[in-house]
Design a protein around this nucleic acid. Structure first.
Length: 241
DNA sequence: GCGCGAGTCGAACGAGCAGT
DNA sequence: ACTGCTCGTTCGACTCGCGC
């Protein structure tokens, strides 16, 4: 039996009425009450913000928050009904838990995990994770990207033009080959079995990714099963370049 | 003075870290 | 302990210069 990697707090089911102004989503709870929830995903959420979709909200008891509810999951029907994770900082948290459990054999037997390590030419970028202590001398720079866009069973990143994402790729390339550089695409939905760069949304990113792979960048497109109960790791998706 | 396009900026929230 | 910055991201609101 596969263990839960992450368990959601109690969630409140509802129906998405509309998403607007990037951070807001009006949701009708099953009680009939209409609430405005914080949408912690500032991306375009292409294909995953359709009104009348089933959603799941968490509720914060932080009194400083203006919006107590947070949009966590939305159900899509591209394939079978599938829950998609909306919360963009969850992938980092979940990957941290997965690293602690050594769920990615591709990364070897590191002994130290550091988060948010400063790197880059101007020392202004931060890598999500920095792994050291493996038998191999080279440390690992690991960057995590949240992926929700899909075409059928093919997951795509990015879902919009991302100059920041391009910058991250360039900076990872600059580290090669003295260190290992790994891009981990967190496929935030269980129905996708393959992964490709989203050339239609950001062709520059797609080209950069291929250049980076040629230089030695490693890509881990990771599949996760998402449900209101929690998140489980399903293994790697097939990389289609 | 007006309308237009291009460019810049701040708001929204939370986590984590550095500096005081 | 506290403040302030950075990161994630988009877009409405705003300023600027241009041509008429």
């Amino acid at each position: 039996m596969m263990d839960w990697l992450y368990r959601y707090p109690p969630l409140y089911p509802g129906i998405l009425l509309k998403r607007y102004k990037r951070f807001f989503a009006d949701v009708q709870l099953t009680s009939g009450e209409i609430v405005t929830a914080h949408c912690p995903n500032t991306g375009p959420m292409t294909g995953v913000s359709t009104p009348q979709s089933a959603v799941q909200l968490s509720k914060s008891d932080n009194l400083n928050r203006k919006l107590a509810y947070t949009l966590e999951l939305i159900q899509v029907h591209d394939n079978e009904p599938t829950w998609v994770g909306i919360n963009t900082f969850l992938p980092n948290r979940v990957v941290k838990l997965a690293l602690a459990k050594y769920l990615f054999p591709e990364l070897g037997e590191y002994s130290q995990i550091k988060g948010e390590v400063v790197y880059g030419l101007d020392k202004k970028s931060r890598v999500d994770f920095f792994l050291t202590g493996s038998d191999e001398e080279r440390p690992i720079y690991l960057e995590v990207k949240n992926t929700t866009l899909s075409e059928g069973r093919l997951a795509l990143f990015p879902d919009t033009e991302t100059t920041r994402g391009q910058k991250h790729l360039r900076e990872l390339m600059a580290l090669l080959p003295l260190t290992r550089a790994v891009m981990l695409y967190f496929i935030n939905r269980g129905d996708c079995t393959e992964f490709s760069p989203g050339d239609r949304t950001d062709p520059v990113y797609g080209k950069l990714l291929r250049d980076a792979i040629a230089l030695g960048l490693e890509v881990l497109p990771c599949r996760f099963d998402i449900s209101p109960e929690g998140i489980r790791y399903l293994g790697l998706a097939k990389l289609k370049i």
